[in-house]
């Protein structure tokens, strides 16, 4: 297992380098300029100077190499400095966002907590809703509960989040007045009152995303359960005279969870990636909102760094999913 992990990690390095170059070129070649959002009242000479000050007029490979150096050396070094008070990265240029001139990593650091709380909660809520629905739907296949579950999943799949989110806003914020429409990122949870406030402002984005997540996962759970339910070993368990609870929850569920856990693990990078639409809609200043903002403003360092971090996370969680599979399923062993 250890050698397998190490080998996979080593293999990931060249892959990621290639990915980073591809991302860089794609982002760079995409049409648009960092100056496109600037009012026309600013004359061309000034624009040119602004572009030069950003370093955006350098040839693409110079910028790529600079970015590589910043990403793999300057940023870790400055992180290290931050922890241990060393001065490794002193005088080094960190990756700066063109939009805000702030270091990209401190922006990410600022935003990650929101994304993790909101999107993470939505993911967990989604899973918590999905598993029982999937399990019971499969156990009572074609029952009215199963039909309702199918309908729920279909809605969750097909209704885009901007639609369900807007619907929730109109219903719960405008009409009922229960929840705020704009997420207050400054809110600190200190007591019950602020906790309640936090819960209220998380309610709508979590519902919106939770619905979408639950739809997908409940389907996986259901089909995996159905597949296992027909297996002989389940009949064996029944023949042993095990109680129905044991048969379903111990035998069927445990085996059915293997692929579902993998799917869930593979979905985790998307938590970090945030949810572009939902975050934007509810004003959650997460990573997704940062990404879309950066794309709109042609903030190449920001887009590039975020895209690359996602790539790393995806590669990492693929590995984690494989390892999990190995841990959960005794039939699979990695050398």
């Amino acid at each position: 297992m250890l050698t397998f992990t190490l080998r996979r990690l080593l293999l990931a390095v060249p892959t990621l380098l290639v990915i980073s170059l591809v991302i860089f070129l794609v982002v760079d070649l995409a049409p648009g300029s960092p100056m496109s959002e600037i009012p026309l009242t600013i004359p061309p000479e000034v624009r040119r100077k602004m572009i030069a000050a950003l370093g955006a007029d350098q040839p693409v490979f110079v910028r790529y190499l600079l970015w590589l150096r910043q990403f793999f050396w300057v940023e870790p070094a400055s992180l290290f400095d931050g922890w241990f008070g060393t001065a490794l990265a002193d005088g080094e240029q960190r990756i700066l966002s063109w939009q805000s001139r702030s270091p990209v990593f401190s922006i990410i650091g600022q935003r990650l907590p929101q994304t993790l709380t909101v999107i993470g909660t939505a993911y967990i809520v989604g899973i918590l809703i999905a598993l029982p629905i999937g399990i019971y739907s499969a156990y009572r296949q074609y029952s009215w509960f199963d039909q309702a579950g199918t309908l729920f999943a279909m809605i969750g799949f097909s209704v885009p989040t901007f639609f369900s989110g807007t619907l929730f806003i109109l219903l719960f914020a405008v009409w009922l007045g229960w929840f705020p429409t704009k997420y207050d990122t400054q809110l600190e949870v200190r007591d019950w009152a602020s906790f309640w406030q936090q819960a209220r402002q998380m309610a709508m984005p979590v519902m919106t995303l939770g619905l979408a997540n639950a739809a997908a996962i409940s389907r996986y759970m259901r089909s995996s359960m159905l597949e296992n339910m027909g297996m002989d070993y389940v009949r064996t368990a029944r023949a042993k005279g095990m109680s129905e609870r044991t048969v379903v929850l111990k035998h069927v569920l445990r085996n059915s969870l293997i692929p579902v856990v993998t799917v869930i693990a593979l979905g985790i990078p998307s938590i970090f990636g945030g949810a572009i639409v939902t975050e934007n809609l509810f004003g959650v200043n997460g990573i997704g909102a940062a990404l879309i903002g950066a794309i709109q403003a042609n903030d190449i360092p920001m887009v590039q760094t975020l895209a690359f971090i996602f790539a790393v996370l995806i590669v990492l969680f693929n590995l984690i999913a494989d390892i999990l599979y190995g841990l959960l399923d005794p039939r699979i062993r990695y050398e």
């Binding site: 002989d232 070993y233 009949r235 368990a237 023949a239 042993k240 085996n255 399923d329």
Partner: peptide
């Protein structure tokens, strides 16, 4: 409660054993 007195040996020995349980677990579960 009647089940212990009537048992079955299944056609497919592979499929009839829970892949995530050890021999001890399988045999001692009843």
């Amino acid at each position: 409660r009647k089940r212990p007195s009537m048992q079955m040996v299944f056609q497919d020995p592979q499929a009839s054993l829970n892949p995530r349980m050890t021999l001890a677990d399988i045999v001692s579960e009843p």
